[in-house]
Lab assay of single mutants.
Amino acid sequence: RSVMTEEYKVPDGMVGFIIGRGGEQISRIQQESGCKIQIAPDSGGLPERSCMLTGTPESVQSAKRLLDQIVE
């Protein structure tokens, strides 16, 4: 099973929602998708923050879907 890492951008203002209280939302996304998510510590003043998604292609797709649901 191939593991890939893909960069994915999320709106900087939504990072708090994505991480959730005490990190529980991001933990849930990682468990549900099976994908490891690393969010950049800051956006460098840009409107979007970079996330690194690491996992199988299916888990990366799944994580993107879950992130999109939060961001919308």
Rank of each mutant, 00 (worst) to 15 (best):
R1D: 15
R1A: 04
R1F: 15
R1V: 10
R1T: 14
S2L: 09
S2A: 11
S2K: 13
S2W: 04
S2M: 15
S2D: 03
S2H: 03
V3Y: 14
V3M: 15
V3K: 15
V3I: 15
V3D: 10
M4S: 04
M4T: 08
M4E: 06
M4L: 11
T5M: 13
T5Q: 12
T5F: 13
T5V: 09
T5E: 14
T5S: 13
E6M: 13
E6C: 06
E6F: 07
E6T: 15
E6D: 05
E6Q: 15
E7C: 15
E7I: 12
E7D: 02
E7R: 15
Y8N: 01
Y8W: 08
Y8E: 01
Y8A: 02
Y8C: 02
Y8M: 05
K9Y: 07
K9H: 06
K9S: 05
V10S: 01
V10E: 01
V10R: 01
V10P: 02
V10C: 07
V10G: 02
P11G: 04
P11Q: 05
P11E: 08
P11Y: 04
P11F: 03
D12E: 14
D12S: 10
D12G: 09
D12L: 08
D12W: 03
D12P: 13
G13C: 10
G13Y: 14
G13E: 15
M14Y: 11
M14T: 07
M14K: 08
M14W: 06
M14I: 10
V15M: 11
V15A: 07
V15S: 08
V15Q: 07
G16W: 06
G16K: 11
G16N: 10
G16Q: 11
G16T: 09
F17K: 15
F17T: 14
F17H: 14
F17V: 13
F17S: 15
I18A: 03
I18W: 05
I19S: 09
I19N: 10
I19A: 11
G20I: 02
G20D: 08
G20V: 02
R21P: 11
R21W: 15
R21D: 02
R21G: 08
G22V: 04
G22D: 14
G22S: 05
G23M: 10
G23W: 05
G23K: 09
G23L: 03
E24M: 06
E24F: 13
E24T: 11
E24P: 03
Q25S: 12
Q25Y: 04
I26N: 01
I26P: 01
I26K: 06
I26G: 02
I26R: 03
S27K: 15
S27E: 14
S27F: 04
S27I: 09
S27G: 12
S27L: 09
S27A: 15
R28L: 07
R28G: 06
R28D: 12
R28E: 09
I29F: 04
I29M: 10
I29W: 02
I29G: 00
I29C: 03
I29N: 01
I29P: 00
I29E: 01
I29T: 03
I29Y: 02
Q30H: 07
Q31L: 10
Q31T: 12
Q31C: 14
Q31H: 08
Q31V: 04
Q31I: 09
Q31N: 13
E32V: 09
E32P: 01
E32F: 03
E32M: 08
E32A: 07
E32L: 06
E32D: 07
S33P: 00
S33W: 01
G34V: 02
G34I: 02
G34F: 02
G34S: 03
G34Y: 02
C35S: 03
C35R: 00
C35T: 03
C35Y: 00
K36D: 12
K36Q: 10
K36C: 11
K36R: 11
K36E: 12
I37P: 01
I37W: 00
I37G: 00
I37C: 04
I37Q: 00
I37L: 06
Q38P: 00
Q38C: 13
Q38Y: 04
Q38T: 11
Q38S: 13
I39L: 07
I39R: 01
I39H: 02
I39Y: 03
A40E: 12
A40L: 09
A40C: 12
A40H: 08
A40F: 05
P41K: 10
P41A: 10
P41I: 03
P41D: 14
P41M: 08
P41E: 14
P41N: 09
D42R: 11
D42Y: 05
D42W: 06
D42F: 06
D42A: 10
S43L: 05
S43W: 04
S43T: 10
S43C: 04
S43G: 08
G44C: 12
G44P: 08
G44Y: 10
G45H: 03
G45R: 07
G45C: 11
G45Q: 10
G45N: 06
L46E: 15
L46G: 13
L46V: 08
L46D: 13
L46T: 13
L46C: 11
P47M: 06
P47V: 10
P47W: 05
P47E: 11
E48L: 14
E48I: 09
E48K: 07
E48H: 05
E48T: 11
E48V: 11
R49A: 06
R49M: 05
R49D: 03
R49K: 07
R49V: 05
S50L: 14
S50N: 15
S50C: 12
S50Q: 12
C51D: 00
C51T: 06
C51P: 01
M52W: 13
M52Q: 11
M52C: 14
L53I: 15
L53H: 00
L53K: 00
L53M: 06
L53N: 00
L53Y: 00
L53D: 00
T54F: 05
T54Q: 08
T54Y: 10
T54W: 03
T54I: 09
T54C: 06
G55H: 01
G55W: 00
G55P: 00
G55D: 00
T56F: 06
T56D: 08
T56M: 04
T56C: 11
T56W: 03
T56P: 10
P57T: 10
P57V: 06
P57D: 06
P57N: 14
P57E: 13
P57S: 11
E58A: 09
E58R: 07
E58V: 07
E58D: 15
S59A: 14
S59M: 06
S59K: 10
S59R: 08
S59G: 09
S59V: 05
V60K: 02
V60A: 02
V60H: 01
Q61G: 14
Q61W: 08
Q61M: 13
Q61I: 11
Q61T: 14
Q61L: 14
Q61H: 09
S62E: 14
S62W: 08
S62H: 13
S62T: 13
S62L: 13
S62V: 14
S62G: 13
A63P: 00
A63Y: 00
K64A: 07
K64V: 06
K64P: 01
K64L: 02
R65P: 01
R65C: 11
L66Q: 11
L66A: 07
L67T: 01
L67R: 01
L67V: 04
L67A: 01
L67D: 01
L67C: 03
D68I: 06
D68N: 12
D68F: 09
Q69H: 10
Q69A: 13
Q69R: 13
Q69P: 06
Q69Y: 03
I70T: 15
I70Y: 14
V71K: 11
V71E: 06
V71Y: 03
V71M: 06
V71D: 05
E72Q: 15
E72D: 09
E72S: 14
E72W: 13
E72F: 05
